Amino acid sequence: MRNLDITTLRSFLAVAEAGGVTRAAGFLNLTQSAVSMQLKRLEESLGLALLDRSGRGVSLTPAGEQLLKYARRMVELNDEIYARLTATDWEGELVLGVPHDIVYPVIPRVMKKMQRDFPRVRLQLISSYTAGLKEQFARGEVDVILTTETEPGDGAEPLLEVPLRWYGAPTGTAWKTRPLRIAFSRRCGFRPVAISLMEREGFDWELAVDSESDRTIEVSVSADLAVTPILEGHAPAHFELIPPGELPELGKQSICLYASSARPQLIEPLLGALRAEFGVLRGRREIAAA
């Protein structure tokens, strides 16, 4: 009877998600050689090549792609069993605050992992703008917050740097009109950044939509009545990236992490999950850039 080892499957998953052995080793707190040996053992036990190492990075072979979904299910089931039978001391409530525009794709995965690994910890999610979240954090109303900032504030842990881009309607023409019609939310932290850059460059623009409602911004942009700044990769599916260089560059924003020092036993697993998921995003960006 042959049995698959959960530890080797966990290493395989980390390599597949991180896109490389070195980065996966960092996430697993193992040496690169230890991870490589585990992968070799897994391939030998199955008699299959799971990774294609011929390119600059590491990609999955067809057999590796097939194994991936099973490996994820087995590791998740293993962790769920272990958590439910042993983690009886982990109990309480945490409040996580996240700007609405970076909820996807990371936060659902983090919440699922926390529920699986720590079923007695209730994780409450609130979504708001960075300024409001920082105020709530300062008052002790939120345990952990993520922010989007041009410059990380005191006590911030930068997780990822993301370009701020212009988005409009698919096949739209609003970005070609002058003055450029822009839709802004009144509380959006990107608003002063974009206005400052437009004014500094003397670009002809006007405020087309000034609203408290993000839905109003979405409808206006989707209708090709205006454009709006959004973090690259975080725009709604019905928005289209305006080709870089056509409008003034908006620079980059840092996604930052702020955490309370209270209740570290509960908070540290959440911080670890957030760091790991944003680490995966950072790795994918680095691979794409290379």
Rank of each mutant, 00 (worst) to 15 (best):
182 I>V: 14
261 S>A: 13
45 S>M: 14
8 T>I: 05
215 R>T: 12
153 G>C: 08
277 E>G: 07
103 V>K: 06
270 L>F: 02
93 E>C: 11
243 P>G: 07
70 Y>A: 15
108 P>K: 11
218 E>F: 11
67 L>H: 07
208 A>D: 00
201 E>D: 06
95 V>G: 02
249 E>T: 15
192 P>N: 02
30 L>F: 05
242 I>T: 04
212 E>N: 10
36 S>K: 12
174 A>F: 02
239 F>R: 05
267 I>C: 03
153 G>Y: 11
49 A>D: 10
268 E>G: 00
120 R>S: 08
44 E>Q: 13
223 A>F: 04
156 A>Q: 05
243 P>W: 06
222 S>F: 10
1 M>G: 13
56 R>A: 09
27 F>M: 14
94 L>H: 13
226 A>V: 03
175 W>N: 01
62 P>Y: 08
77 L>Y: 09
290 A>G: 15
167 Y>P: 06
96 L>P: 02
36 S>V: 00
44 E>Y: 02
58 V>Y: 03
192 P>M: 02
198 M>V: 01
128 S>M: 06
10 R>S: 12
94 L>Y: 04
215 R>I: 07
125 L>N: 01
250 L>V: 07
74 M>S: 10
18 A>W: 15
92 G>I: 08
288 A>G: 00
172 G>E: 03
15 V>D: 04
14 A>P: 07
247 L>G: 02
52 D>E: 13
82 Y>D: 07
49 A>S: 15
23 R>L: 05
152 P>T: 07
19 G>H: 06
247 L>D: 09
218 E>A: 12
181 R>G: 00
86 T>L: 13
234 H>L: 13
